[in-house]
Amino acid sequence: MTAVAHPIDVPRSGRWTLFGVVAFAVLIFTQVFAFVTSPPDANMGQLEKIMYVHVPAAWIMFVCFVIVMVYSLRFLWKGREEDDLLAAAAAEVGATFNGLTLVLGMLWGKPAWGVWWAWDARLTSTLVLFLVFVGYLALRAFVDDPQRRGQWSAAVGILGAINVPIVWMSVTWWRTLHQTPSSAQTMAPAYLAGLWTNAVAFLLIMIYFIRRRYEAACLIRAAEHAAQATALGGLE
């Protein structure tokens, strides 16, 4: 693995602003579409509408984990700093969507179950995964050297991503084996259209957020590299 010596590619953001506008427009459209076209749920009434943010947010959280893993592997393999920065951006965005999922889940659960937290299998797994994200971000905050930070984050990110299905399975078993009723969230076909379209919208939003976060990180690193060039004063 070579030492980080080459300057960072600072990505150009021209087209991405347009992408962001489009992404938000799509999101508004799909949310309105879901609101308008989906019937109120027999049990929960209009509360069901939360699902159109809560569920796609959860799906995006998983996508972010995968992105973190892929780019962490790439970083360990190729040693390009950009890959580390993208993995970190995906982790931040993933943590955000994770937090959103949790909050909405609790907002949904309070009227539905009567309590803020019922150790529901899915929500509990989401909470554990949130803590995994937090650990990754805490590690990055505590390590200053970019080389070390990149390699350690990559290892932690990969292990965390591997653990996602295992955590999910173990928490779900824990709940079902104890014979306590879990919240039935069967998806009637009427809701599916709304969910899938919103999932696509959220995916676009996710891509936009990660891109922007990544650009910011690249700019910071490029500034540091520029300082390097000054300090080296023209030597190779």
Partner: peptide, 13 residues
């Protein structure tokens, strides 16, 4: 050969 620790350049070439 150059090396930095955080923002500080200890070796500058």
């Amino acid at each position: 050969v150059a090396r930095r620790f955080g923002a500080r350049w200890v070796l500058r070439g």
